[in-house]
Computed example of a mutant assay.
Amino acid sequence: MNIYDYTVKDGAGNDVSMDKYRGKVLLIVNTATKCGFTPQYKGLQSLYQKYQPQGFEILDFPCNQFASQAPGTNEEIANFCDITYKITFGQFSKIDVNGENEDPLYTYLKSQKGGVMGSKIKWNFTKFLVDRKGNVIERFAPTTTPEKIDAKVKALL
């Protein structure tokens, strides 16, 4: 299996094959709208605007598993992100990233880059950088800002 074998749900609940992103550099992020790291949306949008024309995509997966910091429906989360941060990158349906109901994409990502806590996602805004061939290159802690990832994204493009 590789990253392109997975299917995720968009914000409206429709299936989206990860194969759609073949040949792109990806930053996959679990997010929350009521988190201390929520202002990272601004940096993510900046990174997206800077590199999207060169084949870069950000895939945003809201997650309510950490202190219930992503309350609301997919639509409410999307509206908040649009109004507050004007995000234009792909936002998907709310998922679990750990535990019994974790999304299979996250099971795969964690198997590729375990991180400091083993495979478990520590908190919101954990980021996975994927190259154009679908290889998971690096995992970043929630405290790693999008600005600190800029050079790594640029190098993969």
Rank of each mutant, 00 (worst) to 15 (best):
I83N: 05
Y85A: 10
Y106N: 08
F92I: 03
P62I: 09
Q52K: 15
N98G: 05
S111G: 13
Q52V: 03
D150M: 06
K94G: 07
K133T: 15
G72D: 04
V29I: 03
V130Y: 07
I149K: 00
K94I: 09
C35L: 12
Q112F: 15
M18C: 07
K34F: 10
N74D: 15
T73F: 09
L27I: 02
P104V: 14
D131I: 00
I95Y: 12
A12D: 14
Q91P: 05
I77Q: 10
T84Y: 00
Y4Q: 12
T7K: 05
A151Q: 11
D82V: 05
Y48S: 07
A32W: 04
Y4C: 01
L59H: 11
P146G: 04
F66C: 10
N98L: 01
L44E: 06
I95R: 09
C35N: 12
D15Y: 09
N98R: 11
K9V: 09
Q52A: 14
L27W: 01
P62R: 05
Y6Q: 09
D15T: 11
A12M: 03
E57I: 11
S17C: 03
L47F: 14
G55Q: 02
Q112A: 12
N79S: 14
W123S: 12
E57S: 02
N64S: 04
K133I: 07
G11I: 13
K94F: 02
D82A: 15
F89L: 09
I137M: 09
S111H: 05
D131W: 04
S119H: 06
R139E: 14
I58K: 00
E75D: 14
F61E: 06
I149V: 04
R132D: 11
Q54D: 10
A155H: 03
K122S: 14
G23S: 03
D131V: 06
K148G: 11
K133M: 07
T126E: 13
T126M: 11
A141Y: 13
V29E: 00
K152N: 06
N14E: 13
Y108Q: 00
L105K: 05
Q52W: 09
G23D: 03
K34W: 04
K24N: 05
F128M: 09
K152I: 10
V16C: 01
K120D: 12
K122C: 14
V25Q: 03
R132F: 03
K20E: 12
S46H: 02
Y51D: 13
I87W: 03
F89I: 15
E147Q: 12
K50W: 00
Q91A: 08
A67K: 14
F56E: 07
Q112M: 15
Q65R: 02
S68V: 13
N2K: 01
Y108W: 13
E76A: 11
T144N: 07
D10G: 03
S119I: 15
G43H: 06
I87Y: 07
